[in-house]
Design a protein around this nucleic acid. Structure first.
Length: 575
RNA sequence: CGGGGCGUGGCUCAGCUUGGCUAGAGCGCAGCGUUCGGGACGCUGAGGUCGGAGGUUCAAAUCCUCUCGCCCCGACCA
């Protein structure tokens, strides 16, 4: 490709609205352009990257036995009501819905369980036709509460979604295992460093589920990884050994103490010279269910934090969020900051974290403004609530799986997510097949997503330097950047053209900067920004049949005879 | 949803407080010339309903109201 002809327009300045590196560099290098919040146009260079990622995805999905389809992204409300997701997703405010000219409601879909289940149930009637795994690479829509970080959290994005249908759980586990392997191969082939973590199923549903996280400090997800074994989990899901707290000793009489203005454990710790782990904080939530809401009080040892996802799962709620002041006052009869289990209003559901077991003589809120209770004891002063693991694990805590490992806390970008769905959708949508006894059974499903556009952004997050992008070779828009320093010099022009011709003949995608009257500095700066893995510079040595070869990532530079260019480029690309 | 900020050529921004001549700069773009290995220089030039609507005024980019869009922060761990 001749750069003089290419639709590739770099920007001299950083776009003012770009916050994260990938957004800034992709916009500046002319790969993407914003059209609306969370909605981007992909220029040719970006399209090439997406095609490369897609091609890798396609090859590995096909290798794993999946078959490609294209499902509608504009879908009728009916099938979403069948699965029960219409109301839930609309309530969550993340579903783009619209009304057609005759008043029928439709939506732009975030995932395609309904459509694929419909497709399969009308086609497959027998266990003998199973298993099947169908996938597509298609645009998806989510009306994000707050789109941000460029391609990282867009409202429109490209996703590969796959759906497996098996006759039983064992088949599902097999399909899932195949996908897991395929995903590992995909991200390895994309040249990304990633971690597989246990995850929470969230709105999609299902049991076993793992996420593929690209390691990046700017990631939106926090992950905990054991340094001693292979345990790794998203913080939403992570467990850990309970850190030791101070013991309270033999029960003493409970007493009420004035604590004007002390709303935090730290303030109380100071006032009473009491370890924070001797306190129980009572965190009030609003739990939302399909048909109702309730107030829930979670009792947590003072030095630990509540994991809201675990609370929602323990309750079977659609969502939980922190109670607002009105709800807090209704539940406690006091201003926020003084909630406690003793004397909390009836109707408030109380749940305890495992950490409160065995605590004695603890401090907690008195449900009375400016008062706390000291030396409170379960059984005597207040009933022991049902306890569950509701704690948010943190880096530095002990691994839940092995004896001596410690959890490290890092961040990641979720680029893939695989689920063992089970029969949630097939049951709801009456997607049935006959088994060998002619018994009608629901398909056992799995679903598997990869954020294709997010993979490209994550690759930039993970691979860049101060000068620009450093594309991993397998997903670079072109592998080689031939730069003709001065095309008006015949020897330079001929050398560059020869390199382009021979490299393309050898199967490489080449971008040839043949622009006339563009200064060398501009060409080099642009090349750094665009970030192709190998650069071939035809410059002042061209008259002697010599060009320079430079590796973008390392900066390593070598002078190479024209005859050897193809071989040398091959060596550097590992091809 | 709450709070804050911003909308002025393709991009980055100044001008607005205190209303007043043909609305500015840099970059980019076009032409000419000089340059030619890390975002060169000179000259000439094109390009703007100042987000939109309404209002105040002799006069509005500037003041007021409404509206649309975009960005950031937050959603209170008691």
């Amino acid at each position: 490709m001749r750069q003089s002809q290419a639709f590739l327009h770099t920007l001299r300045d950083d776009p003012s609205d770009a916050e994260v590196v990938s957004h800034r560099l992709l916009a500046r290098a002319g790969f993407i352009q914003k059209l609306a919040a969370g909605v981007y146009s992909y220029a040719p260079a970006m399209t090439r990257v997406l095609q490369r990622v897609s091609q890798i995805v396609r090859e590995e999905m096909n290798r794993a036995g999946a078959q490609e389809v294209l499902l509608p992204i504009l879908q009728p409300k009916e099938i979403w009501e069948e699965s029960g997701r219409w109301e839930r997703y609309q309530k969550g405010g993340q579903l783009f819905s619209l009304t057609d000219h005759k008043g029928a409601e439709m939506c732009l879909v975030p995932t395609a369980e309904e459509a694929v289940t419909t497709l399969v149930k009308r086609s497959i009637a027998s266990y003998r036709q199973l298993p099947v795994n169908l996938y597509q690479i298609h645009t998806k829509f989510r009306d994000e509460i707050r789109p941000r970080f460029g391609l990282m959290r867009g409202r429109e994005f490209i996703m590969k979604d796959a759906y497996s249908f098996d006759a039983d759980e064992a088949g599902l586990r097999e399909s899932y295992a195949k996908m897991r392997v395929a995903y590992q191969r995909i991200f390895e082939r994309c040249g990304l460093k990633f971690t597989i973590v246990q995850a929470d199923a969230g709105a999609i549903g299902g049991s076993t589920t793992e996420e593929f996280m690209v390691n990046a400090d700017t990631g939106e997800d926090t992950i905990l990884v054991c340094d001693g074994c292979n345990y790794a989990a998203n913080v939403e899901k992570a467990e850990s050994k309970l850190p030791a707290g101070e013991t309270g000793g033999e029960p003493k009489p409970m007493h009420l103490e004035a604590t004007p203005g002390d709303k935090s454990c730290e303030q109380l710790s100071k006032r009473f010279s009491l370890a924070v782990s001797r306190m129980i904080k009572t965190v009030l939530f609003r739990a939302v269910y399909a048909e109702r809401e309730e107030t829930v009080a979670v009792l947590m040892r003072g030095d630990l934090d509540v994991n809201e996802v675990k609370v929602a799962n323990a309750l079977g709620a659609l969502a939980v969020d922190l109670a607002d002041d009105v709800r807090v006052r209704a539940a406690t009869g006091a201003e926020p900051g003084f909630a406690g289990p003793v004397g909390i209003k009836p109707g408030v559901k109380v749940l305890g974290d495992l950490s409160i077991q065995g605590m004695t003589n603890f401090l907690c809120g008195a449900n009375k403004t400016d008062y706390h209770l000291l030396d409170v004891n379960f059984g005597r002063d207040v009933a022991m609530p049902e306890v569950r693991d509701l704690r948010k694990s943190k880096g530095g805590e002990g691994c839940p799986k092995c004896a001596s490992g410690k959890l490290g806390e890092t961040r990641g970008i979720e680029v893939g997510h695989i689920f063992q769905l089970g029969t949630k959708y097939s049951k709801a949508m009456s997607a049935l097949f006959a088994d060998d006894q002619q018994v009608q059974k629901p398909f056992v499903m799995g679903c598997y997503g990869i954020g294709v556009s997010r993979v490209a952004a994550a690759a930039v997050e993970q691979n860049h330097d101060k000068d620009g992008i450093v594309w991993p070779a397998p997903i670079a828009p072109w592998q080689v950047h031939v730069i003709c320093v001065n095309p008006e010099d015949a020897s330079q022009r001929e050398a560059a053209e020869r390199c382009e011709r021979e490299l393309e003949a050898a199967g490489f995608d080449v971008l040839h900067d043949d622009r006339v009257k563009v200064s060398p500095g501009v060409k080099f700066k642009d090349a750094d920004l665009v970030g192709l893995p190998v650069r071939v510079v035809a410059g002042r040595d061209a008259k002697d049949g010599v060009v320079e070869l430079k590796v973008r990532r390392t900066g390593a530079m070598a002078k190479v005879k024209l005859d050897a260019v193809t071989a040398e480029v091959k060596a550097r690309l590992g091809a």
